[in-house]
Amino acid sequence: MQTTNKNSVQRRHHATILPATRITHAFERAQNEERGILIPYFMCGYPSAAQSIELVLAAATGGADIIELGMPFSDPLADGATIQHAGHVALERGMTVNGCLEIARRVASQCAVPLLFMGYYNPILAYGLERFCQEAAASGVCGFIIPDLPTEEALPLQQAANQHGLALIFLVPPTTSDDRIAQIVKTATNGPGGFLYCVSLTGVTGSRSAISTHLRSFITRVRGYTKDHNLPLVVGFGLSTPEHIAEVTNYAEGAVVGSALVNLIDQHPESQQVEAVKKYIESLRKR
């Protein structure tokens, strides 16, 4: 494994606390400032490996609390057209699991924002669960979000993640029954759960114009199962505007923005993308 000087400094800096604890600290900081946390998503390798690093750093400068790094997969069945396209381009341009780890290392050596990998299970399985967790932890990653890994199948990865202090974060869609919410919370709390990712809508990723009117009651329902655990609730899928973020963080601890960022990147020439991302993140944080 490659090790740069900066990298080892970073690792020493974080050596005393578990990676997943850095997620918890991000929530505590935001709570002290009486605001929700903001989690932007960037696809590793989109529009290019080098540029994706610059965009992530711009988001950190703009005020991102945690950053999701998308790992591209050939068959992203939980993603809408926007993220599908970004992943397709990233793969065409040669992005790999090793490439994603390298992007995480480079980002972590330049900023302290906790990083999460969001990707599908097969590339991780092919890489080797133990090897992947070990290298992710060493690269400054704090946890994973795997949309095709429900609780029933999560044990092997969760065990490997636990050994390296990484959080395995589960998704909860609005159609989930009470029984299953209880089961997801129970599984999440078998390790450092990080947070619960509450899906705002029934469907795949992608920007929507309005937030579901049922979202607030859905979050309240989930809260009934998490209140005895230190498991914050974050809302994602379909969010794009400062108004969305403001509304959602009234009743959840945080919000994720993904496809809207890819669209924003697509609307700007490469030379203006860094500034556009920074301003956009600032606009979301202001509320």
């Binding site: 069945l77 095709d148 429900p150 159609t175 899906v199």
Partner: peptide
């Protein structure tokens, strides 16, 4: 069953 949670039910 390696599917999104929304399909489990």
């Amino acid at each position: 069953k390696f599917v999104p949670e929304s399909l489990m039910t």
